[in-house]
Design a protein around this nucleic acid. Structure first.
Lengths: 342, 342
DNA sequence: TTGTATGCGTTATCAT
DNA sequence: ATGATAACGCATACAA
């Protein structure tokens, strides 16, 4: 036997209960239009609404208004420990304004990304927070051109003036290099993130600057690009770097996962960290303090990045046409056990 | 200047282009009703639809049909590394059937949970996958009673016959105890998860059975309950356990986070693992192999749990009234460095 | 085989 | 201050 599920009460139900027209109920319940309705009527409508347990139907509302109080969260993969804290930050800021977020995972597949964003748009999301930007990203340029509200996190796009919230990559890398130089390291290498991403480029550039500023060798062989921001790609690049017998004693990894890839290669080659080689990561993802050895890394305020990105997006939704801002979030070096005096 | 964003084409646009009525277009595009339309008309309609880039409007569709091809994912906190793989599993199974999932984080707050589930329901989700079940959970009982499709993961609810997908806790704990006993440990303790959750109870019960079956002491002092499934709660319980000077040489932790709490306490007390005390976790969350020491744990097929839960839910949606099944997913012990011979 | 009419729940635009 | 009407995009009972 099917459960007897009474369908949710509508404006019409309230109207009937109170003895007024649905239009009046709508106005009485909408703070913006409440003034148009008699005070006594408002009172009775609100009472009835509460008694019936009225909840506005967001779907009907969307259909009518073409809005949804919803934004899309476009990330590569929620399985990357970087993203959950950002997502929570985003959602807490959205929630404060009565919005909510819809998460999609693109797996860095442009086709999939396009499909998912289409689906998001067909659901009338009012904006997009995008963490998958590549430097050359036609889809984002397209969206921007067609007036879709977009905020980028962690990444930028070349030649498109999109608002973004990123970590201060330059300061972070610089602090890492300073730390290693202070420990007496002179041949410092960089396992760079993919150079198709602005973050990869920014960190690599910052690395070269930092190294040069200290009068250390800016040998091209000391920078190896990783194909992806992953442990495996990091390991591959670390093998190249370490195979070249370049006398490297310290590595600035593009991010924590790449640093983990280094750990794997140290294991393979019988190198010990930090005795033989020091490593610094980037991001400070969870549980890094419990690794063997605990990873020295650059802490990034993920939650805050999410909060700021959400605020920026809501701001753009409310004030379209406002010029794009870029927010640089402060980072800090967290010294743990993976770095030691040379 | 506002971008000229042409609104998405509707059935009406196609109808106009082809010169038929919207009804005909609707039928021609709907596989189920295509037979009612002339083959030639179908062809022309489909051609026009493709040319115009028609995408059905899911909101209008929802309003009309009270469905949404959407399900709600109710989890405590996406920041817990346990959940992302499950979420991905769920989404891949949903995607295959044209469904998608909407994630909400309850933070284990019943008020918040109710609010979020209300919001999900008002968005016409066709079902719920719930990971936040407590043994006594009136809200879930309510939902079940009112005919909402629900599938539980990781947890069960007492006295309510809800379908669920869980790890085989009993086998996992049993394997952990067998492993430790095989290493010569006799005083084995259990840091149990919250006893308000079925998982906490199941693992604790399995622990006592396993210990007794081997003729080892089933001392009540050897089981300490953690207030939450967290590192901090695990540490607190570990302090209690280790403070009691009970001669414990091995610990079966309720889950990996609790095991990490043990690591913290070992650090505080100058105990070394596995020399002084062995620890086994549960779940095999990411990066455990890189801890100091690498954590021996019970691997749970998170992705598969997600896949099965989603399939079960879709099955329930398509065939309401089908009896609830409980699916037990196989686990396996992963031996690493946190356990050693006594 | 195709078209007409209606309604899902809401709000905007009129009119009263 | 309130009501009547229409429309958002779609699917369906009914008519032709």
């Amino acid at each position: 036997m099917k459960a007897n599920r009474p369908s949710a009460p509508t404006l019409r139900d309230i109207a009937q209960a109170v003895g007024v027209h649905t239009t009046t109920v709508s106005r009485a319940l909408n703070p913006r239009t409440q003034g148009q309705v008699g005070a006594e009527t408002v009172r009775r409508v609100q009472k009835a609404a509460k008694e019936l347990g009225y909840q506005p139907n967001p779907i009907a509302l969307s259909l009518r208004t073409s809005r949804s109080r919803t934004v899309g969260l476009v990330i590569p993969d929620i399985t990357n420990p970087l993203f959950p804290p950002i997502v929570r930050g985003i959602e807490s800021a959205l929630e404060a304004e009565g919005y909510s977020g819809w998460i999609v995972n693109t797996d860095n597949d442009p086709q999939r990304e396009r499909k998912l964003i289409d689906s998001l748009r067909s659901r009338q999301v009012e904006g997009l927070i995008v963490a998958t930007a590549r430097m050359d990203h036609p889809l984002l340029a397209e969206l921007h051109a067609s007036g879709v509200q977009v905020v980028l996190i962690n990444r930028r796009v070349e030649g498109v003036d999109l608002p973004c919230v990123t970590a201060d990559d330059s300061s972070g890398v610089s602090a890492a290099v300073a730390h290693l130089a202070g420990l007496g390291h002179t041949r410092i290498a960089h396992l760079a993130g993919p150079q198709g991403t602005s973050t990869g480029v920014a960190r690599a550039r910052a690395f070269r600057h930092a190294v040069r500023d200290r009068g250390l060798p800016d040998d091209p062989g000391l920078v190896v690009e990783c194909a992806r921001w992953s442990e495996e790609a990091g390991a591959r690049a670390a093998r190249t770097l370490l195979g070249a017998r370049s006398g490297v004693t310290a590595i600035v990894a593009g991010n924590d996962l790449i640093a983990l890839g280094c750990y794997d290669v140290f294991g393979e080659r019988g190198l010990s960290c930090p005795e033989d080689v020091s490593v610094v990561g980037f991001n400070d993802m969870p549980f890094l303090d419990k690794l063997r050895p605990p990873l020295t890394t650059v802490r990034v305020p993920h939650h805050d990045i999410g909060v700021e990105a959400a605020r920026m997006l809501l701001d753009g939704i409310e004030n379209p046409g406002r010029p794009a801002r870029s927010l640089l979030m402060p980072v800090s070096l967290v010294v743990r056990g993976s770095t030691a005096r040379r």
